[in-house]
Amino acid sequence: MKITQLCSHPIIQAPMAGGATTPELVAAVSNAGALGSLAGPLLTPLAIIEQAEHIRRLTDKPFAINLFVQTRPQIDYAALESAKQLLQPIWMSLGWNALPTPTRWCEDFDAQLDALLIARPAVASFTFDILHASQIQRLHDAGILVVGTATNLAEAQVWQAMGADAICLQGVEAGGHRGTFIGKQEEATLSAMALLQQVKSHSHVPLILAGGIMHGGDIAEALQAGAQMVQMGTAFLTTDEAAIHPAYKAKLLELASGNSAEGEEATMQTRAFSGRLARGVRNRFMQTMQTVAQQVPAYPIQNALTGSLRAHAAKTNDTELMSMWAGQGAHRVRKMSAAGLIATLITELQQHQST
């Protein structure tokens, strides 16, 4: 079976790590005829299984689970102290005497993959790196379709050669972390449409387009240009079921209200929060760290280091220190239920296709 046959509508709700993709959101999207996705990268193996079970209590429709392909980091404690000093302007502004050293850096990917196989979603999607052929075979043996993330042609070709069932093409407009694993992240600058044009003649698997897709008209353009499906993240952040921080959701709705002059300039890419290039709403943290962002340690070390700062921001409702991941279309978000958004998108899509 192809991924396009799993749901009625050519829409995948993007997996957004950090708690946005609740079982309620995933199930609501799947029940509405699209494909809901659970973000598993920050979940323990047990939590992946439990949340998959929760989703199944809410829907009998197919859904996806996403993981970051990563290895446990080797910690250089001298370099770690230097990294803490790079963050000093932030933690000193809070009146802290020091930045806490994390006790945990990331989840074990192999254990998460084992849990995903137990959870057995219809689709497993991956970003940050590529799977081994043996891992893809295990997923296929379990009846799970594999989707790889690509930000350039070389990555798309490698995923296809390794046996991926579909490829998600992530344009530079997309919110959250860049999926780049071949070449420098800063060099993966193609828009979603430009990337699609570059890849489609080299591909024989379904292509899923991600980046800047907020409206049914955007979906129509993507399908007309050669994509088989679209993946949308930012559009779902302001749905009722998304569990982002209320202040984060309010900030996105403010951008969409017309009271903000920022528009597409409201977001920027930064390494400062996590050590991997990611797009989010501009704030004081990003701007303070901009000059040293290239010096921070790679993901997941920096991500763990900033964890206490982001936790403090959440407790104090301080959006200036939150990682508010969002794409360039953030100023086009809409407040409604997930099912309402899917219905609206399909109506808009059909209107564009009929003109």
Rank of each mutant, 00 (worst) to 15 (best):
R104E: 08
Q353Y: 13
I208F: 09
F68H: 02
G280D: 01
P246Y: 10
V296N: 02
H9T: 11
R334V: 14
G40R: 01
L94F: 10
A14H: 09
R72C: 06
L43I: 08
S30R: 09
L25G: 00
G148C: 13
M232L: 07
S8A: 14
G36R: 05
A278I: 00
A32F: 03
A314Q: 15
G327Y: 11
V146K: 11
R178I: 14
L321E: 06
Q157W: 12
L87M: 10
R332N: 14
H202T: 13
I130G: 01
H132A: 05
S203N: 14
Q295V: 03
G212C: 13
N66I: 10
Q137P: 12
V26T: 11
T189P: 00
S203M: 13
Q269N: 15
P45S: 00
T180Q: 03
S125Y: 10
A52V: 04
M1K: 05
A311I: 08
H312W: 14
H245T: 05
E241I: 07
W91S: 05
A266L: 09
F128G: 06
I3V: 07
N303Y: 15
H54T: 07
T151V: 15
R104C: 12
A235N: 00
S354Q: 15
M336V: 04
D165H: 06
A124H: 09
S82V: 04
K200I: 03
E265H: 08
F109T: 02
S125N: 10
I213F: 07
L345C: 06
A227P: 07
G275D: 09
D60R: 00
G216W: 10
T127Q: 08
Q135F: 12
R279S: 07
S337Q: 06
R284Y: 15
F285R: 00
R284F: 12
W325L: 03
Q328T: 08
T355N: 03
P41N: 13
P297N: 01
L190H: 08
G33L: 15
F126I: 09
G18H: 12
I118K: 09
P121A: 01
F128V: 06
T355K: 04
H352N: 14
Q5G: 04
V158P: 13
D60A: 03
I144G: 00
Q302N: 09
A235F: 05
S308P: 01
I130Q: 03
N303L: 14
R56H: 03
V29A: 03
P206Y: 12
L321W: 11
S201D: 10
A83S: 04
N317E: 09
E348H: 12
E187F: 02
A261P: 08
S260E: 12
E187V: 00
H202S: 15
F68P: 00
F273L: 07
W159I: 10
E107T: 15
V333S: 11
D110P: 02
G183A: 13
R284P: 00
E81M: 01
A133F: 14
D129P: 04
A243C: 03
R334K: 11
D218Y: 01
A27I: 02
R72W: 08
Q5E: 08
D129K: 06
D108R: 13
D165K: 07
R138E: 14
I213A: 09
G33V: 13
Q228A: 14
G307P: 00
K249T: 10
A210G: 06
A194S: 06
V29H: 01
